[in-house]
Design a protein around this nucleic acid. Structure first.
Length: 426
RNA sequence: CGGAGUGUGGUGUAACGGCUAACAUGCUUGGUUUGGGACCAAGUGACUCUGGGUUCGAAUCCCAGCACUCCGACCA
C-alpha cells in the first residue's frame, strides 16, 4: 500500500484526552480514532493489526469449533429467560422512541455484552441428541458493555472486539476434557501472536458463573488491572481474588513463595456446567432415552484488548513495535529519491511492485517529505523491517535495511533483498 | 457510582477580571532545500464545552449540566 493512500497522518503531540501508552501511540501513529471514552474507530493501519490478531484466533478456533455470527441486538426476552435482565449491570439497551426517532415503537433491545443467552436457545433448537454432542460454536464480533469506567485506551472499552466460543457436552467429564484441551489451544494463540512468554494460565474465581474455579490468561504488563500471584517455575498463576487460606488448602499451594505482579487478562475460560441449560430447560436425549441437561463451557479472547497489550509490552520511546505476526505490514519501504524519475525513485517503484507482486505486505512511503520526517514516522508506526532506497544507498551497492528493534542498519543488494522476501522467485 | 483534575483554531499550548484571544504545529500558495520530525514569505483557521449568574467589563470568578483523564468501587 502506498502511504499516500493511508489518508491518516501521524502527530508529534500526544492527544490531551489520553493518558495510556497504547492510546497515545496508536492515536499518534494513526491506528485508531477516539469517538468517546472506550470506543475507537480502527483506521487503516489499526484495522490491519486487528485483523491479523483475529485471523490467528480464527485459525486456532477452527480446530475446536465452528464459526457463526450472532446478532448484536437481542430481545429483552432472552435476558428475562436467564434472569439476567436485572442482574447484569453492564447491559446496554436501545432507547424507546423519542424526538430524534420518529418511529412509534417503544421497543428497546439489548445490545449484547456476551452471548450465553443467545447461543443456548440456538443450541436447544438444533442439538437435541447425544449423537450431536459435543458441539462448539464461536464468533468474533463487537461486544458492548456499559462499563462504569472505561479506561486505558483499548484495554477497557465500552465497545470492543471479542471472540467467544460456547461448547455443549453430554456430561461434566466431557466438558472438563474439552475445557482442559482449550488451555494449550489458547497458549498457541498467544505464542503465534508473540506474547506467550509473558502469558500465564491463571486460576480465577468463576464469579457468578460457576462454583468452580475458572481460568484466565494473564499477560504481564505494568498497566494491568489485575494482580496475580505468579509461580514462574511452574508457569501458573493465581488471581489475587482467589488468594486466601481456603484456596491454599484446597489446591495445596503456598502463596507466600510466589511473586505478586500486575497483569492484563487477555483471555478466559469458564466451566458453566448446567447453569444456562437448566434455567432455559434445555435437555437432550441421551443413549438411555433419558432427558438430560447439556454441560456448557464458554471461552473468550478480546482481540482489541490484545492489541492494546501488545503496544504496552513492546513499544519504545520512538513509537510502536509490532511482532511480525501482527504487524500491519512486513516491510516499510522508504524512498528518499529527490525526483520520482531518478534512479532511486525508479528503483523504489520497482521494488514496491516486485514485493507486492510476491505478496509481501509493503507500506511504501512515496510521500514528498524530508528524510527525517519519514524516519520518525517509520519508527512511530513500528513495522518490523525498514528498507530505504536513496542515491546514497545505491552508491553503497543497493538498499539499506534496518529492523525496527535494531540500532544499526546494513546495505544489501537488490537481489539479496528480493531473495529474502521472495524465496520462491528465481 | 464516590473522590480529584481538565475543557481555548484540525492538533498541542498561552493569555493579571481590561486593547483586535497569542504561539507552535497542521492545512493552502510560491520559492529554496533533501539521510533523523528542513527554511523563507504570504495566506487559512476559535461565538474560549453548554446554560445561567456576578461585574462597567468574563477564556479568566460563582452555580448547574455535559464531556474527557486519573484514583477507588464495580468488572457476566
Amino acid at each position: 500500500m502506498r502511504q499516500s493512500h493511508l489518508y491518516t497522518k501521524t502527530r508529534k503531540e500526544a492527544p490531551k484526552d489520553e493518558a495510556s501508552k497504547n492510546a497515545i501511540l496508536l492515536t499518534r501513529a494513526g491506528f485508531i480514532h477516539k469517538e468517546m471514552a472506550g470506543a475507537y474507530t480502527f483506521l487503516p493501519l489499526g484495522l490491519r493489526v486487528l485483523r491479523k490478531i483475529e485471523d490467528i484466533v480464527r485459525r486456532h478456533m477452527d480446530t475446536v469449533g465452528t464459526e457463526i455470527l450472532m446478532t448484536t441486538l437481542s430481545p429483552e426476552e432472552n435476558w428475562k429467560n436467564t434472569n439476567r435482565l436485572d442482574t447484569v449491570d453492564v447491559l446496554m439497551r436501545t432507547g424507546p422512541a423519542n424526538e430524534v426517532s420518529k418511529q412509534k415503537s417503544s421497543n428497546s433491545y439489548i445490545i449484547n455484552p456476551t452471548h450465553e443467552d443467545m447461543i443456548t436457545p440456538i443450541a436447544k433448537e438444533y442439538i437435541q441428541s447425544y449423537k450431536d454432542l459435543p458441539a462448539a460454536f464461536y464468533q468474533i464480533q463487537t461486544k458492548f458493555r456499559n462499563e462504569a469506567r472505561a479506561k486505558s485506551g483499548l484495554l477497557r472499552g465500552r465497545e470492543f472486539r471479542m471472540k467467544d466460543l460456547y461448547s455443549f457436552h453430554k456430561d461434566q467429564d466431557d466438558l472438563m476434557r474439552y475445557y482442559e484441551a482449550m488451555k494449550p489451544v489458547y497458549m498457541n494463540i498467544y505464542r503465534d501472536i508473540g506474547i506467550a512468554d509473558d502469558t500465564f494460565i491463571t486460576v480465577a474465581s468463576g464469579g457468578d458463573f460457576t462454583p468452580n474455579f475458572s481460568h484466565e490468561f494473564q499477560t504481564l504488563v505494568d498497566v494491568g488491572e489485575d494482580t496475580i500471584y505468579l509461580d514462574r517455575a511452574n508457569r501458573i498463576a493465581y488471581n489475587k481474588e482467589v488468594v486466601n487460606d481456603e484456596t491454599a488448602q484446597k489446591l495445596g499451594v503456598d502463596f507466600s513463595t510466589m511473586e505478586q505482579v500486575s497483569a492484563c487478562e487477555v483471555g478466559n475460560i469458564f466451566p458453566l456446567d448446567t447453569k444456562y441449560t437448566e434455567v432455559l430447560d434445555y435437555t437432550y436425549s441421551d443413549h438411555d432415552g433419558l432427558k438430560k441437561y447439556p454441560y456448557m463451557g464458554c471461552y473468550g479472547i478480546g482481540p482489541s484488548r490484545v492489541m492494546g497489550v501488545i503496544v504496552e509490552k513492546f513499544a519504545d520511546e520512538k513509537g510502536l513495535v509490532w511482532p511480525a505476526a501482527v504487524a500491519p505490514f512486513s516491510v516499510h519501504l522508504i524512498s528518499l529519491a529527490k525526483e520520482k524519475d531518478s534512479e532511486a525513485g525508479k528503483l523504489a517503484e520497482e521494488l514496491y511492485a516486485k514485493l507486492t507482486e510476491s505478496h509481501v505486505e509493503v507500506l511504501f512511503d512515496d510521500r514528498d517529505e524530508s528524510a527525517g520526517a519519514k524516519f520518525a514516522d517509520s519508527d512511530l508506526i513500528g513495522i518490523p523491517m525498514r528498507v530505504v532506497v536513496s542515491e546514497k544507498s545505491i552508491e553503497k551497492g543497493g538498499v539499506e535495511i534496518k529492523e525496527r528493534t535494531s540500532d544499526t542498519s546494513e546495505i544489501v543488494t537488490v537481489e539479496q533483498l528480493l531473495k529474502t522476501y521472495t524465496p520462491n522467485c528465481e
